[in-house]
Design a protein around this nucleic acid. Sequence first.
DNA 1: TTGCGTGCAAAGGTTTTGCATGGCA
DNA 2: TGCCATGCAAAACCTTTGCACGCAA
Lengths: 138, 138
Amino acid sequence: MENSYNTKQGELILNLIKAEEGKHFTADEIITLLANEGKKVGKATVYRHLDKLIRAGEVRKYIVEEGTSACYEYVGHNHDCKSHYHLKCSSCGELLHVQCEFLDEVSSHILGHHGFSIKPEKTVLYGLCKTCREAENV
Amino acid sequence: MENSYNTKQGELILNLIKAEEGKHFTADEIITLLANEGKKVGKATVYRHLDKLIRAGEVRKYIVEEGTSACYEYVGHNHDCKSHYHLKCSSCGELLHVQCEFLDEVSSHILGHHGFSIKPEKTVLYGLCKTCREAENV
DNA sequence: TTGCGTGCAAAGGTTTTGCATGGCA
DNA sequence: TGCCATGCAAAACCTTTGCACGCAA
C-alpha cells in the first residue's frame, strides 16, 4: 500500500476536476485554472497528483489529438466505463462523451465476430458534430 | 501538386516499411533499422518523409500508447479505407481492416441518436487482438 | 541551373526528475 | 520527529525548424 498525506494542493486538484466530471483538462489548464483562483500549484505537483489518481483509477488519461498534450478526466470510483466512448469533432474540436448501451453491443459484436476486445478508454471516434456537419453540408 | 525528387533516403524509408505492411515502426526504429544495414539517414529526414507519405495516404500514424513515440505504418495507396473501420492492437500493433454491416449500423445509430457523423477512415478502434488477449489474460 | 532534399544542431513543447525546503501526521 | 509533498529548475523525450550544403532533374 502507498502511504500518502492529505495536502492542500492535492485537494485543490481533485476538487477542480471532480467538480466537472466528464470534462477533460490538460495539465496546463489545471495549473492555469487554479492560478486564476489565486492558488498557485507547481507543474510537477499537478503531474504527480494526476499520476497518482490515474493509478488509483479515479482519473483517466487520454490523447485527444496527436502532438498535443494529454487530457485528464475525473471518472470517479465506479470503473464501469466500458460503454464510455469519445467522439471528437475533427472540425471544431469538440469532444463528446457518449454513454449508450448500443455501444456495448458494438464491443460484444467485435469481440464475438472479430475476436478483438476494444478498449473504449483508448478509443476516439473521429467525425463531425451536428453543428459542424450542418455548417459544412450547407 | 507537390514537386518532389526521388532520393536514396526516401526509397530506403519507404522500402523498409513497405516490406512489412501491417507492421508499425516508430521513427526511431526506422533510423536504427537502417543504421543496422549501414544506411545512415538523419532524424529530420525520416520525419519529413513520413509526413509526406501520410499526406499522400500511403502511411498511417498512430499513437499506440500514451507517452510514447508515434507509430507509422505502411498501408499502401490502393486501400479504400472509407468504407471500413480499423482495429489496432495496442500490444502487437496488428492492424485489422473490418468491413461489416454491423458497423454501418453503428454509424447510423450515432448519427441518428447523437447527431455525430463518424468518419471511419479517420477512426481507429484500439484494443487487443485475439492472440494478444489470450496471451495477456493467462 | 533550379530548387527540393539532407543532416546537423538548435529550438519547441510536454512530461519527468533531482534536490533542498516545507508541511502533514 | 519522520517522511511524504512541494516547487523550482534542469533534464529527458519526441518532434519540428533553420540553415548551409548536396543532389536530382
